[in-house]
Write a protein that binds this DNA or RNA. Structure first.
Lengths: 262, 262
DNA sequence: AATGGGCGTTGCACATGTTGCAACGAGATC
DNA sequence: GATCTCGTTGCAACATGTGCAACGCCCATT
């Protein structure tokens, strides 16, 4: 909506791919060098962009601080964390917590597996939305219109032969997940990794977050992992209860999908 | 430099303090509501701001993703990490890695203590710059002019009676640190926590990062901690060697202080 | 039910801030 | 020392952002 700000903010993902000099920024932004310079200066003043000594720009450290404060203001995370840790200690596998925000699903917390074989994932990294158990749970809770709109918009990359192949299959899977109240990802993202997930619900019953347990099948078989489902669901329900219970803040951080503004 | 962008970016730290509605944002920004709305919309489109269902705005999740990518592009961190882990396993205490960027010192990596008593710190949180060992190391490496300018500009909060009380004492401490090549913080930030630090240097000998070992004195005395100094310094030197060795990138991420643009 | 206040939202006319140009200067390369 | 590249500056034209006023919506009050 605001051209100048729009351009300035477009610089950030651009720099996320790696440092760039003024010329490159200007070119990739499609503006004159002097314009790019002024935008970069402003970003720099706010610490979002840092100028290394070879004069190239990269993302600034203030970004951490902001992200850190952002994550700390998420009530769910705070409440869920001890439960995640406890679950991790009980089963020994990797535990994730994720939320949805404007059609994007993001991990906001993680407890590492105690086995040496760990899966790759990072807090803050967007989740493979068509296959991940947590993504299915979060999207399954959207209204039907939203689900369909999203499914249409999505790509369905075949990470493995077991990945969700297309919109129809995805919607069907979502219906199942919605019905049964839990989700799986059996080798849909990485061939050898299985995953089970359960929803965390707010006081109004809507899904505010989703958690999952992941493990490579060299450690446990899919069946053994599925045996953990009751434990996982109990944990998710405990978090839901605690989250719904204390209305200590007038506005809980509820990450439901926002209706698009036309 | 750019008014519009400047205003838009000012919204971020504002929201970092907690969710706010349009009116509050407009007021604290000193602009008309309609202006604030447009800025927020633009931020929203880029995912930096999220609108929760009570219509209030808070920081968006894209911020994580960006911060994550920012931290991953820091070469020092990648190289140092295994060394930090190894050191953590050897001594059992909390290990930190920090860089300086435009007069701000930030932790960029951390290995938790194996003792139940852990100290509070967070990756991304700005460091108490007048007392922390890592801060002293990083600032001590600046030019004398920069050090003095910075010292003048700084506040010297008395976290404890042992905190650095004023600019003169700080500069003197910096001189000592510069001389001896290592630094301490003995109860200067929290009464019961001691800390020793050593610098990581680039090929040109400049300090690119600083690392530290921290422990509460209920676990080890200051003297016992100081006994770890040789181990710490060897580790820091090993990182320095590895970091200087491979010039795989034309532009290493060297977080030296930038000269202000007037 | 009806009324009032609060808040987000829209369209618009004005003018302010932003843009691209051209020229300058510094640093590197040959 | 000449030439090229790249960051930087001042400026005039104008596109863009700005504040105003009015609208509509929701919620609380009477």
């Amino acid at each position: 909506m605001s051209q100048t700000v729009d351009r300035a903010l477009s610089i950030l993902p651009l720099l996320a791919q790696g440092p760039a000099d003024l010329g490159q920024v200007a070119e990739r932004l499609g503006v004159h060098k002097s314009t790019a310079l002024r935008l970069l200066r402003t970003l720099h003043e706010h610490g979002l962009v840092y100028r290394q000594q070879d004069q190239r720009y990269r993302l600034g450290a203030r970004l951490f601080a902001l992200a850190q404060e952002a994550v700390e203001s998420l009530d769910v995370r705070e409440i869920a964390h001890p439960h995640l840790v406890a679950l991790g200690e009980q089963c020994g596998h990797t535990v994730h917590l994720a939320v949805i925000e404007d059609s994007e699903v993001l991990y906001i917390d993680k407890v590492e597996s105690r086995y040496p074989v760990r899966m790759y994932s990072r807090i803050g990294k967007p989740v493979a939305v068509t296959v991940a158990a947590v993504a299915k749970l979060l999207i399954a809770d959207l209204s039907e219109a939203e689900r369909r709109a999203l499914a249409e918009r999505l790509d369905f990359p075949m990470y493995t032969p077991r990945s969700t192949p297309n919109a129809a299959a995805f919607l069907k899977e979502l219906a199942t997940v919605r019905e049964q109240g839990w989700a799986t990802d059996l080798g849909g993202h990485e061939e050898s990794i299985n995953c089970i997930g359960a929803p965390v619900r707010g006081a109004d019953g809507r899904v505010v977050a989703a958690m999952s347990v992941s493990a490579p099948n060299v450690v446990v078989t899919a069946d053994e992992l599925l045996a953990l489902l009751p434990l996982l669901r109990r944990t998710a329900e405990a978090i839901s209860r605690e989250y719904s219970g204390n209305a200590h803040h007038p506005a809980p951080a509820t990450p439901a999908l926002q209706k698009e503004i036309p």
